[in-house]
Amino acid sequence: MTASTLTTSLSPRSTAIRFGPLDFLRRLFRTTQAQIGGAIVLLLLLTAVFAPLVAPYDPYELRVGSAKDPPSPAYPFGTDDLGRDMLSRIMYGARITVQIGTISVALALGIGVTIGLVAGFYGGWIDSLLMRFTDIMLAFPGFLLTLAIVAVLGPGLTNAMIAVGVGAFPGFARLVRGSVLSIRETEYVTAERVLGATPTRIMRSSILPNVLAPIIVLATLAFPLAVLDAAALSFLGLGAQPPTPEWGALLVDGRNYLRTAPHLVNIPGLAIFITVLGFNLIGNNLRDVLDPRLRAR
């Protein structure tokens, strides 16, 4: 599953954010779900930024004598199979998780928004060409496209991020194009065009802000999918390489300890789960807030 499956749920009729930032945040965090999600995401970001300051130990330091220790006051999350502090590894892993999500989504956004804007704005054969290309990429369902890209690029965290990002761009392209199409013929844009504004200017000043809302929603929902896809790649041995404390890799490395040292698999599992849940809760509420049909009520 990638972002592409989500696009269809976003109406191209969704339009721009038309209220101030404070009002927006108040609306967004009105629900319990969003509050929970927000707290989770905030915690993740803080951990990622301050990992070197707050991590109690060096996440790479091996301790031969204390491998697989269960959680204790000294090691709140226990130690891993090489005696490394799990809490510190999870904290450093948070940085990688944020990296994976940000880079993959940024890549998908960059490619997708460009293609979508150009296709939607210019129309005609450019539109046909770009959209046929997007459609073909969309024909490779989600994870398969990512896998194929990794097969070509080879395993590794960087390649995994590229693959996940490229795998997710078609969803953005289609969404943006749809939104642009619905805005292109509005009086406002027509007026600008008549006044002689360059296409780039029109795109930047008029169209992009108007398609921002659905893009934000999709990006928020694509972030957790990128994290899950990266973890899935780790499961297949195609993701992050040791000793990188990427959560998916930690989870996969811990799988044989489900019975003997369950914290080795359950702590990274929970870390991924909670993070992804947090983003999903926020993303879903963003959609509710930004979707004018629902907001009207």
């Binding site: 779900q33 899950l228 899935a232 499961f235 599992g269 991924i272 789960f273 999903n280």
Partner: peptide, 26 residues
Amino acid sequence: DSPIDTVAMIVATTGISMPAFWFGLL
């Protein structure tokens, strides 16, 4: 907007938020 809504949606979001491999193994 009732607690039922919140619970139902959190439960529904749970499935897609679990790493498939961990979910399956558990």
